[in-house]
């Protein structure tokens, strides 16, 4: 049985089902990270002025995080390029940019791994302070989202791209939706970076 408006847009809303679904999903993600940012605020307010000391003690690596910010922004760019290539019907360029996006996610995670292990070497664990606790909770959850987005993109760039030959529009839509998720993950980092490293 065919579900209507899986590929073609609904004449009244102008959107297909997946587009609405992904935006709804993103609203719930906003609430998820919103609650964590609220937690951050509550912990910071409740720290009796110790926050800056906890932050200094954690010795977060600002240069590495800056590189990571650049990597993620670059990956958002390649994501759009991948989608635009599909719109033009260029499968080869789509695959190139698709894999570049996945690779950027990989670089981000490797850098994050080095950051985490450096913390552990200095005996900075989540239990050490509430600053480190919320740092690991939020960046960890963000890293899980990066992994999810990478898996999603890797599927459509790899085995999922066979759809190109049978239903190109559907593949283009799916890549657009995974791109929306990827931009969201990027955007969360744009908030995390100043909140933890710079403020």
């Amino acid at each position: 049985m065919e579900i209507p408006y899986t590929v073609e847009a609904h004449p009244e809303t102008g959107l297909n089902n997946g587009k609405i679904g992904i935006w709804l999903f993103l609203t719930s993600e906003v609430m998820l990270f919103g609650a964590l940012f609220a937690t951050f605020i509550m912990l910071r307010i409740g720290s009796d002025g110790n926050w800056a000391a906890m932050q200094a003690e954690a010795e977060l690596n600002i240069p590495l995080a800056t590189i990571n910010t650049a990597v993620l922004i670059a990956s958002s760019l390649t994501m759009v390029m991948a989608w635009a290539s599909l719109m033009r019907g260029q499968l080869g360029r789509f695959k190139l940019f698709g894999w570049l996006t996945v690779a950027c996610g990989g670089i981000f995670l490797v850098i994050k791994y080095f950051e985490y292990t450096a913390k552990f070497e200095h005996h900075h664990y989540p239990e050490s302070s509430t600053f480190l606790a919320i740092y690991f909770a939020m960046t960890g959850l963000h890293a899980l989202h990066v992994i999810g987005g990478m898996a999603w993109n890797a599927y459509f760039t790899g085995p999922g791209s066979k759809l190109f030959h049978t239903n190109r529009q559907w593949l283009t839509d799916r890549v657009e939706h995974s791109g929306l998720f990827w931009h969201f993950v990027d955007l969360v980092w744009i908030f995390l970076f100043p909140v933890f490293y710079l403020l």
């Binding site: 609203t27 719930s28 609430m31 998820l32 990270f33 919103g34 609650a35 937690t39």
Partner: peptide
């Protein structure tokens, strides 16, 4: 959709 994510957090 909107109330459950904070509990998940």
């Amino acid at each position: 959709l909107l109330a459950f994510p904070p509990l998940e957090a």
